[in-house]
Amino acid sequence: MKSIINYFKEIFSGLKSLVKGMSVTGHYITHPKEIITQQYPENKATLKMFERFRGEVVLLHDENNEHKCTGCSACEVACPNGTIEIIPKRIEIDGRKVKAIDQFVYHLQMCTMCGLCIPACPTDAIVMANTFEHAVFDRSKLTKILNKPGSKIMDGIK
């Protein structure tokens, strides 16, 4: 007799647990306000990344098209993946030959966004930007030259 009671108890407790489980999903279908989907390209205007988000390395330029990079290669050394390549050149400032950058080459395809290059920079020339849409149609487009054409080093940066 006991086993028969247990048998029915089992059925009822089983059914009860199933109904309870269904109540959880049932709660969400009756509360459409709790939908968490974000429709990405449509909400672009309101979408804001957190300021510390590491998207890609950029070389800061001011309004005079001047940057702070001296070409010291500290970031190149700090980078674990060989993402940054500094091609230096010699320029003349006040009659002295000084090392400067010719091209600041940045291989986005190799970057792991670890951010080690940022604190390595002695002049705070590079920062991490918040951009996150890096998809391009051609891999070669991922190799970027960060210093803008015609830009030069800011005065007083050594």
Binding site: Y28, I29, P32, E34, I35, I36, T37, Q39
Partner: peptide, 13 residues
């Protein structure tokens, strides 16, 4: 759609 609403999604839009 139903599965999406169960899962707090919107489904195909």
């Amino acid at each position: 759609k139903v599965s999406a609403f169960f899962q707090q999604r919107l489904g195909p839009m």
